[in-house]
Every structure is written in C-alpha cells, then in structure tokens.
C-alpha cells in the first residue's frame, strides 16, 4: 500500500499540539512507515503539497493564517483540527473583547519595559490581524475535530490509525477532553 501523505501546520497557537504529537515517542518510528510527513514545522517543506491528510493546529488570528488554512483545505482530502484553538478558537479568543488596534497599541507602547517614544506599531512586511481570533471551521470545512489543550498523544495517534484504516473518525467519549 502506498504511504498516506500528510501535511501539518500550526497557526494561531502555542505549539503544544505538535508537542503532544511528538509525545507518541517511539511509536513515531512505526507511524512514519505508514505515512509520509511532507510539510510540517518539524520537517523542511516550504509549500503545502497535495496530501491525503491535512492537519491544522491553532485558530485563525491573522490574514496569513486564513490563507494557509484555505491552502491546506484545497490540498488535502481529509482535514483534521488539532486542539482547542483549531476547534473552538481557544485562548486566542480572549482578545476578541478588544479591537486589534487597541491590543497592538497597548502591547507595543504601554507595557512597562517598552521604550518606544515614537510609538512604532509593528506591521511592515507582517500579516495584519483579523478583527477577532476564530476557529478554523468559520473559514474552511473541518472533517475531524480533536479538542483538548492539547489532545492526548494517544488520541492523536488513534485518529491517524483510523484514517489509515479508511475511516473518518469521530473521537469517542472516553478520549474526549477539553483541558
């Protein structure tokens, strides 16, 4: 059987879901016998290729992230959302009570150790913030949801195994967690 092609990306998030994926530890060696990870923060691909399984960790908080989420959706057959940020928007949504301009202004001019007399706000060659941080399915269709902050390594591995068996899994109650 040909290996399944996989791409993973991390958007507005902390990296914890990818760390939890690496927590499958020595089982990683078995997994990579069955899947080819072509694009991911842990390998060197720079452009998302056509894949069987696309994984998004993180919410959408800026324009570049929206672009990457759409690109991932276009180039994968099954899209998996890893973690509370992808599924619900997660902790990033705590900024949604304020305008992005206000958040930036405060972070870059009013925080205590900042020395910024000219009130420079970063923005050159940088992606602009969305008005609110949002879960991925506000923009793209998500096929498999794995909540958790982060999801357990066993759950992440189980989802891969199910997909490799040709099923589109729904995380069962005993694996479902939100913290």
């Amino acid at each position: 059987m040909a290996k399944a092609k996989v791409a993973t990306v991390w958007l507005e998030a902390c990296a914890g879901c990818h760390m939890s994926f690496l927590d499958i530890d020595e089982r990683l060696a078995d997994l990579v016998e069955k899947v080819d990870i072509l694009y991911s923060p842990v390998v060197d691909g720079k452009e998302i290729p056509q894949v069987d399984v696309g994984v998004i960790d993180g919410a959408l908080g800026n324009e570049e992230e929206v672009h990457l989420a759409k690109e991932m959706r276009d180039r994968c057959k099954i899209l998996v959302g890893w973690g509370d940020c992808a599924v619900f928007g997660g902790i990033n949504c705590m900024r949604n009570f304020l305008s992005p301009e206000k958040v930036l202004e405060e972070a870059y001019t009013e925080t205590k150790s900042t020395v910024n007399p000219e009130k420079v706000i970063p923005g050159e060659e940088l992606p602009a913030l969305l008005p609110k941080a949002i879960p991925i399915d506000h923009v793209v269709k998500c096929d498999v949801y794995i909540p958790g902050c982060p999801p357990d390594a066993d759950t992440i591995l189980w989802v891969f195994q199910e997909i490799l068996e040709g099923r589109v899994p729904k995380v069962p109650a005993n694996m479902m967690r939100y913290d």
């Binding site: 507005e12 902790i91 990033n92 705590m94 009570f97 304020l98 206000k102 958040v103 925080t111 940088l126």
Partner: peptide, 24 residues
C-alpha cells in the same frame, strides 16, 4: 510574524489564574 496579545487580554482576570493562562 505572529501576535496574540497575552499582556493585554489577561487584564481583568483573577491573578490566581495566571499559572494556568500563561502556559498557553
């Protein structure tokens, strides 16, 4: 190229929550 805003959106929270909020 990313900005999330923890310094700003933590305002108003009970300080005891910070050891749970900031690891994220």
């Amino acid at each position: 190229t990313q900005f999330r805003g923890f310094e700003v959106f933590s305002k108003g929270r009970d300080f005891r929550e910070m050891p749970v909020i900031t690891p994220r």
